[in-house]
Design a protein around this nucleic acid. Sequence first.
RNA 1: CGGGAAGUAGCGUAAUUGGCUAUCGCGCCUGCUUUGGGAGCAGGAGGUUGUGGGUUCAAGUCCCACCUUCCCGACCA
Length: 567
Amino acid sequence: MFFTKMLIPTLREAPSDADIISTKLMIRAGMIRKLASGLYEFLPLGLKVLRKVENIIREEMNAAGGQEITLPLIFPKDLWIETGRWNVYGKELFRLKDRKEAEFCLAPTAEEAVTDLVRKEVKSYKQLPLMLYQFGTKFRDEIRPRFGIMRSREFLMKDAYSFHTDEADLEKYYKVMVDAYTNVCKRCGFEFRAVEAASGAIGGSFSHEFMILADTGEEEIVWCGCGYGANSEKAEWLPLLQTKEEPLILEEVLTPNVGAVEDVAKFLNASPEKFIKSIVYKVDGNPVVVLVRGDHEINEIKLQSLLGATEVVLADEQTVIAVTGAPLGFAGPVGLKGVKIIADLSVVEISNAVAGANKKDYHLKNVNYKKDYNADLIADVRKVAHGDICPRCKKENLRFSRGIEVGHVFKLGTKYSKSMNATYLDTNGKENLIVMGCYGIGVTRILAATIEQSHDDNGIVWPDNIAPFNVVIIPINYSDVKTKETTDKLYKDLTSKGIDVLIDDRDERAGIKFKDADLIGIPYRVTIGEKNLANGNVELKTRNGSKDSSRLLKPEDAMLEIVKIFS
RNA sequence: CGGGAAGUAGCGUAAUUGGCUAUCGCGCCUGCUUUGGGAGCAGGAGGUUGUGGGUUCAAGUCCCACCUUCCCGACCA
């Protein structure tokens, strides 16, 4: 491909409203443009990368036994009523009407559509298992689109759905898909972790997220050298047994106008680890008191799944007063009645703890579990914290990283087959619910995430497999006869070997071509100029700055070298 | 949805207490000179200053409404 034949409008400066580095670089490199908030246009160069990622995913999906289909982007309302998601999905769902006033939505995901297809076409165990996947534009009316194509309102997703006779078969296939996703991440050149995750609104019993490690990631993950990894929303931890002290006599202390843990700790000259933090929540409308150690944070997602609740919110001040009989800041577990108390695992371990006295300006010292208070439920309801021990190997401390979620695999079970009555006949002619899994990869998000992870001051550094071109040839002066001959021959030779080559044939100065090549991030660059050509050499340079990043070679040797890299 | 900031050429920007033909750089077009890390000279095109209304002798600048964009928060996977 010739540079002058392709629309690659590079910019020296990024638009002032571009928020993160990946957006800035993709716009500057002429890959995308913004049309409106959360809506982006893909230019030829950007689309080229997108297609490369898409093809890697397609190959892995086919290898996992998947069959590609396409589903409509517009879905009729009734399917969504069947599963209840027409109401559950809320304002994020783009809704529209046709000329007859019939209601539709734009696809945010496709469980309904694919389950409908399968319930109509699959009748027998002989047709199972089955995996169908598609690449389709997804629409979500995000409250606040941001981070360029990382969280946009329209994006390209690969969504796959598997159908099984039973849980055991799903279990087996789930592992196949985890492997397939791992392959995709490896082939795309990411540094990534597959972590356990909360399943959220899509539902199901179990899920893993594939996280690209990047400091700018929206998600926090914890992991351990032993192989354990989890989204911090979901992460477990190993409770440490604390040395028990001899219980002392409960004692009321005056703590005027100090309510917050840190303030009381300072006031009483005690460590926050000795505190019981008591927080009142409203769980589906009912007040619940949750106890965690003073230096810990409550994990509302764990709380929600523990209680099987649909809504968990902090209680308002009136409720707190009604439950504890004291203003905010003085709640404690001792003497509470008529309200459910949930204690975190590490709370009941504290000897002679400090807690609110449920009385204005008073706290209690020497509070002990069983002796002074009880809990209805003792469970893990707090966020993981630095210093926690890995729950699997029980040896090392958990490590924390930031990540960008590019893939998510779910065991759905019968959530959708049940509500939509998708069944098959087994060997006994008996009707059973189809067991499902679903698996998504954000294709557009992969591009942004890759750049977040892999860039430098000069621009994007694409991994070899997804770069828009494998090689860029820069003739310093394309109108020089010898230069042109060498350039054209090398281009022909490389192209005939299946290498994707861009020739920068623009009538620009060398500096501009170098800057643009770096900005676009093409992994290998061959520079052909009269000086080196006088000695029969061209320069081969790698974008990633690894050792031997720049070498002088005969054109034939440069070609062999490149062919070797991409074979 | 609440709070904040901002809209001037493709991109980045300037314009004093309201005051002359709306500034400069990059990019774009023409010509010349250049050609190994964003060259130089000369000439040129490109604007309803987001939209609508108002105040004023006079509005990019002040006021009102709307639109758009960004940030923080809430919300949501």
